[in-house]
Structures are given as C-alpha cells and as structure tokens.
Design a protein around this nucleic acid. Structure first.
Lengths: 212, 212
DNA sequence: TAGATTGTTAATCGATTAACAATC
DNA sequence: TAGATTGTTAATCGATTAACAATC
C-alpha cells in the first residue's frame, strides 16, 4: 500500500461505494469483474476506477480483471475496517437511537459502548442493551474509558460543548449530526452529516428542474 | 438570476453552508460582511465565495461587502426555500421518526404529510401528529395525493421497490437513507445520505492518521 | 498464442485561486 | 475624495478521461 502522497478526499469517498458494490456482487456469487463492468454498474468511468484503485496498489490482473472478494477485502483494509472502534453517542433522541440500533455495526468492528442525554425521560432507558446515562457523567466516563469515535446527536446549541469535551479526552474522531460546524483540535477528524444541508441541496435540484 | 450555464454541484453544496453562516450572523446582529470576513469564518477562500455567489448574481456592493440578511434570503430563493414541499416518510423506525420530528421543518416550507411502515407495532402510532399507515396503503395514498419529496428510511432490501413506487406516482425528489443506490427515472432527483459510507470515510481518516 | 484487461502516462477538462480594474 | 471591496478575467492547480504499452 502506497502511503507517500496524500490521497484526495474525492477518492476516499468513493471507496465505500466500491466496497458496497463488491459486497453485492459477492452475495450474487460473482467472482471476477472488470473495470468496464464495474463502470456500467456504478457510473464512474472505467479509467477512474482503475486510477482510484491504483492509488493503493495493483489489485487487478491484466486480461482477467479484479477478484471481487479480494478487492472487497482490500478496500476494507484501506478504510481501516479490520480494526475495531469504540463509540459513544451523546444525544439519545430518535436520531441517537437510530444510530445505536444500526444493524451493520454488529457485523463489523463498530461498538456503541455508551449513550448520554440530558432528558430525564431518556436517562435510564435501554437502547439495544445500552443504558442511557445522565449527560453529567460524560466527563468522568471519558476520563476512564478510551473512546475512538464520538457521535453527536444533540441540538445545535450543545454540539460545540460536547465536541470540546470529547476532544479534551482524546476521542480520535467525531461524527457530527448537529446542524452546526464545530471547532476542535487539528488532530481530531470531524465527519459532518448535515441533514438540513442535504435536504436543501435536494430542493435546489427539484425547484430548478435540474439533475446534479 | 443567471440561469444560462449549469452550476456545478460543488457550488450548490456550499450554498446551504453559506446560508447557515449568514443565519448565525443575523442572530448575532451582524448587518454586513465582506468576503474576506466570511472566508475567515467558513474556511473557503474569499475568491471562491465571490465566485460562487456571482454564479447567481451580484449580491454585494464594492467598498461595502454583503448585506447579511439580504444575502441569506437570496440564497434561500436560489435553493427554492420560498416554496413549500409536501413530504412522506416510508419506514417509520427510529430514523424515520427522527426525520419526522426534525424541528427545522416547521420554520420552513417542509411538511411531513404521511408516514408508512410494514411493522404492525408501528402502524397506528402517532409521530408528531402524523399517524403511521400500513405500507399497503402507499400506492393508493400516492395516487390521490401530490407529493414533492419521498423519504426512504426502509431497509436496504425494500428501498428500490419504494423508490419505484414513488417514481411511478410522480414524486419530484427522493431523499434516500437506505444504504443502497436506487435507480429511478431520469427526471427524478435522488439525494443519498449513506450513513455507512460516511462512517467508513471517518474511519479511513482516523486509522490513517490523516486530515481530510 | 491471441484476446482481454490492467497499470500508468499523457491530455483534457473543470474547479479553485490570484489579480486587478471597476465602483461604491 | 480615498479606501475598501466587489465582480470578473486570467492563471494555476487538481481531478478526470483517454490512450496504450505491458502482461496475464
């Protein structure tokens, strides 16, 4: 795996999509696939697919194409899906619960290990085997547990405070669902899921009768 | 508003972010802002901000900058947020409920008008004043109600069927939360929110110790 | 071997940044 | 008026596509 030059974000964001396609093909029993066939299924050019993959190594074979299962697994390795990740969810309303219940985790290395909320109606209830704790406990919990990923499902107004707290206690990455851009230390990765931005974008294309 | 050449997707996806920033500034009472000041707050270059905005018209004034409230409203118009949108949610589990409860709608033109599910435990319950209907009713509901946006919060396996149904009955856009890429008519816009892809991307940066 | 398809270099295209004249 | 800042053109940078020699 080539680690020298920085891989562009555009390439990284296509990797999960490739992997999803390959998983589907595995389920159908497909053993090999060419970049041309992938192109027809996924909509990127064959050239781009080969270019993307060759950022990380030569996974194909001339005259044959790519082995589906092998390429699927290699992309998993590139993404870091061979490792396991401890996650906490702060904000345990519907969205937090939806994420806690997300079935895909159990097949992979993701583990929700704690949930928090300020709402007395939610504190104490159990979501998928995890008891929702009082948000007051967040500091002490983080102080005594090494967490990889902090998930923010709070309101806009609490998001920055939560992010700072996570950052202080050495969380490695933040998955932010609050509709606000948070500021944290340079060495912490933030992935934003801005649902309202997504809906606004959809509406642009609807109201302007365009295709993206 | 210039409608001639097609605006790139990258530009469109920045618009909601500009609008969010401007809203915050309005709340703080800021009346005017220059592209340079926006740049410091949002992280894009001043040049890019001016370039982006000038795709749609000259909203600024030399020597002054931009009027915050006016620019906020103009971006709303560009996005189509002056219109109202009727939405239905198919799949009324935690995620569907989270979206139904999303408070931002009420301030804007978005209306959730119906929800559906196959689960007998969910059918009949009321989410934010909307009763969850049997999924069996989806066809007849769509036949007699003009819906703008269909929201898919089902499992992967039902998503395509739901999308096709929405498409047949003239839904204008689909907001897809199922972890699968759906195929619909050319004239229907699909906005995907692939949470697993998003998490995978986060994990890439964590495990490779990189910044996006 | 002949055919197929990759890996990789070169060409093109599009998006971002820089620069500056226009003008408030 | 002088200073500030836009709108817009030109330059640069990066990402995508095309082409083809290498090779299975």
């Amino acid at each position: 795996m080539k680690e020298t030059s920085k891989i562009s974000n555009a390439v990284i964001r296509r990797l999960p999509r490739y992997r999803r396609l390959l998983k589907e093909l595995m389920n159908k029993g497909t053993e090999r696939i060419s970049s041309n066939e992938m192109s027809a299924l996924i909509g990127y050019t064959a050239s781009q697919i080969r270019q993307d993959l060759n950022n990380f190594g030569g996974f194909g074979q001339q005259g044959y194409g790519y082995n589906v299962a092998m390429l699927h697994d290699q992309i998993g390795l590139i993404l870091g899906l061979d490792q396991s990740y401890k996650m906490i969810i702060v904000g345990s309303g519907n969205l937090g619960q939806a994420i806690a219940n997300y079935a895909t985790y159990y097949k992979t290395g993701f583990q929700v290990v704690a949930m928090f909320d300020v709402n007395p109606k939610l504190i104490g209830i159990s979501i998928n085997g995890i008891e929702v704790q009082d948000y007051e406990n967040l500091d002490s919990y983080l102080a005594s547990n090494q967490i990889d990923i902090g998930i923010i499902c709070t309101t806009k107004s609490s998001a920055q405070e939560v992010a700072s707290c996570m950052s202080n206690f050495g969380v490695r990455g933040i998955w932010n669902f609050a509709p606000v851009d948070i500021n944290v230390d340079e060495d912490i990765v933030v992935e934003n899921v801005h649902l309202s931005d997504s809906l606004n974008t959809l509406v642009y294309y609807i109201s302007n009768n365009q295709k993206p």
